[in-house]
Every structure is written in C-alpha cells, then in structure tokens.
Simulated assay, not measured.
Amino acid sequence: MLIRNVLATLSLLPLSLASCGAAATGDKAQSKGPFTIEEMGQFEEPWAMDFDEESGALLVTEKAGTMRLRLADGRLGSVTGLPKVDYGGQGGFGDVIFAPGQSGPTLDGRIVYLSWVEAGKGNTRGAAVGKARLSCQEETACALDGLKVIWRQSIKVTGRGHFSHRLAFSPDGQHLFVSSGERQKLTPAQDLGNNLGSIVRLLPDGSPAPGNPWANKPAPTNQIWSYGHRNVLGLAFDPQGRLWDLEHGPAGGDELNLVEPGRNYGWPLVSNGDHYDGRPIPRHETRPDLAAPAISWNPVIAPGDFIFYTGEAFPAWQGQALIAAMVDPGIVRVRIDGDKAIEEARYSFEKRIREIEQAPDGTIWLLEDGEQRNSGKLLKLTPVRE
C-alpha cells in the first residue's frame, strides 16, 4: 500500500460563484489539507461504494457491470449474480447501498439495493433499481440472491446520458429515495406524467410511498417527491434529517439543493448555466416561484457524489458537505447555513474523484474516476495528528 503525505501538495482553488444568494469562498481557505492519503486498492471504472457499518466491508460497483468487495482486513473478493447492464456513455452499473439496520459479523445475509442501466426496445434504455440478499459461501465470494427489480425510469428513451440513479434511505430507514435524471431530453423534467428529471420516494419494496405530493395520481406520478432536476449524482441526508441533492448543470450552474416535497427545481426553465451551444438560460433569480439552489458553481466542479460528514476523525468538518469533484479534481468542502451553503475549502488531487464515503471509523474514502483497467484507485484519508 502506498502512503503519501500530501500536506505540502494539496492546495485550495478559488471559487467563482454564479448562484443567487450563494456565499463566496474567501478568508477561511486553508493552504494545506489536514490529512494523509493511503492507497487501499484499484478498480476498473468504479462508480459507487458503500460500507457495511458492522463488519467494515466495502462494496464497489464498476461501471461495465461488475461488483467487487473489500473486507476490512484488505482482502478483495467478488460478487456474482449481477444484472445485465447496458454499458456505454454515462450508462452502466450505478449505485449500491446496504439496507439500514442490519447486523452480524459478515456480509452473508445482508440486504443490498443497487441501480444500473437496462436496455429497452428500439435502442432505448433507462435506469433500474433492484433489491437482493447477499449469499456468501466464502468471505471473499458472495452472490446476489433473489435479485428483483423494484423500480424503473419511466419512460425509456434513446441516448446514454443523465441516468442519475443515486440511492439514499431516509434516516428512519422507512423510505428509499432515488434520483432520476432527465436523460438529456430537457422537457421531461417539467412533465409529471413521467418520472424523469425527478427524485422519487418509495417504500423499501419499491412501491410509491404514502404521503407523496401526488400520491392520489396514477403511476409513475405517485412516486415523485420533487421535480425539475437535470442530472442528480449526489443524494444525502444532513444531520438534521433534511434531504439534499448534488446536481450537474449545463455549461455552468452545478447545484447543491435542499430537496423539499412538491417543489419544482426549475430545469430546463432556469439555470445558473447556459446551453452548451451558447444559448442563454434564464437565471434562477428570474423565477422566484421555483426552488433556487443553496449554492451553485460557475465554472463547474462536475460533482461525483457527496456526504455529510458525521465522524470523529475530522471534528472541524462535522455537519459539513464533502463533495467529490471531477473538474479541478478533488474535494470541495461546504458549510450549511440554514437553507443556504457556503464553500469553505478545496483540496486538489491528481485525478478526478467520482465517489466519496465515510467509513465506520470516521476516515474518508475516495474512488478515482479511472477508465483504464485497474486505474481507479481507492484512497483513504486519515487525519494528521499534531
């Protein structure tokens, strides 16, 4: 394992903000990162990971359609019985999370949820979410038993972008939230007759949750919690139990949003960025009836995923959002102030960071966005003790 002390090489990058009401970075920036980086493994196009809280084992999805596991002692293993994924562009294997409230010393018997892109008819495709039980004949050899699709993007469309398919359980474990991208089709995000461009709220079995804003409407409208989203690649609850999303903008306008039921987040009616061909988009401030971001970035940070840090290893960061960034690769640290957010610091890395998670011991783990075989490193951040 390679250990690198990066105190002298990690730097903060200035921020240009485009959001209405977002606070700028400035005098609280630090010049060095308060951690060392340790390489813990290598993966092929890794996309997501999740820790089992009791055993410390880690599941990692690889975009082309494979899943691997890493035990707490560092041994690597495989997972079989996976779904067939439609791989290409932004599509492939997506997220993985453990169901909340599970216990036991090993992964055997654990319930997991996962997302992927599946093919449809006529060159169409869409995201799917499944539920399965891990059956482990050996500690390093597990299989998905009884995998069942519990949710699908509706409708399936052409193209290979903006699937989103991030997963998050509510703090009480009663509801599963899924981000559903607008598939680069723009207008579906404003159409409540489909579930594209939305965040959906489900029961753990995948059925629409009672109490949703349009619970009395037919499917898929009864699944929808919020809409007007573009491409949500981060979904997390803060320590207060509030749901936030992290969203890719077009040419500018990446967003962190406080997600509230029934709200319209504006895409493609408004944005703090413009279309890639240069056509302007009205800014959020022109439509106060639509939900505005807590903070937005222009130039973009190209977010991967994010967490709200709750551990003891980095006490000064508790309650803050730590964002994996792929442009100016690294971590963006954001402080929450009510329903707004303020960027506090950036820590730069050599390669794009796709995923970030907090381990049971409070250390921070990252996945690089590697496209070549075994080029996506798994990195562990440990605080420097003075």
Rank of each mutant, 00 (worst) to 15 (best):
G101K: 14
D274Y: 05
P46Q: 06
V232N: 05
R152Y: 01
V6C: 00
A141L: 12
E343M: 13
G122V: 06
R354G: 08
Q42Y: 03
A341N: 04
R373P: 01
D254V: 04
E139Y: 10
S271R: 00
I111R: 00
D337K: 15
E118G: 13
V334N: 02
F51R: 15
A294T: 08
E344K: 01
G376K: 04
P261K: 11
L58G: 02
K148R: 15
M1Y: 10
D277A: 04
D254P: 03
A24F: 14
Y309V: 14
V334F: 01
L107A: 06
G262I: 07
V117W: 03
L186V: 05
V6D: 00
I155R: 11
S375E: 10
S226N: 09
E368Y: 09
L144R: 07
G253S: 10
T382N: 04
Y309C: 11
A209D: 13
G330M: 00
S348G: 13
E62K: 11
Q174A: 15
K380H: 02
L256I: 14
R75M: 08
V112E: 08
N231V: 10
Q174E: 07
A189Q: 03
A24D: 10
G120R: 12
A219D: 12
P14S: 13
Q30C: 15
L381D: 04
L114N: 01
P210W: 03
E138G: 02
V200R: 08
L246Y: 09
Y87R: 08
E45T: 14
G376D: 03
S375W: 02
L147T: 12
Y276W: 15
A189N: 05
G304N: 01
A22D: 11
Q90I: 05
G266H: 00
E285C: 15
H275P: 01
N222E: 10
N123H: 12
R352L: 07
G91Y: 10
G253Q: 11
G273A: 00
G338T: 04
E312N: 13
A23P: 06
Q320G: 10
L13W: 10
G370E: 04
V85N: 04
P171Q: 13
P171I: 15
I301S: 05
R4K: 15
W116K: 03
Q102R: 00
G211F: 04
G146H: 05
Q320I: 09
A64F: 07
L202I: 13
A219R: 09
P315G: 10
L203N: 14
E350W: 04
D245G: 11
L10R: 13
G33V: 01
T61L: 00
R333Y: 03
T363D: 06
L243G: 08
Y309F: 14
R4M: 06
G206W: 08
K32D: 05
K84Q: 14
E53A: 12
G91V: 09
P171C: 11
Y265L: 14
K28L: 04
S115N: 07
R283C: 05
S11V: 13
D73H: 03
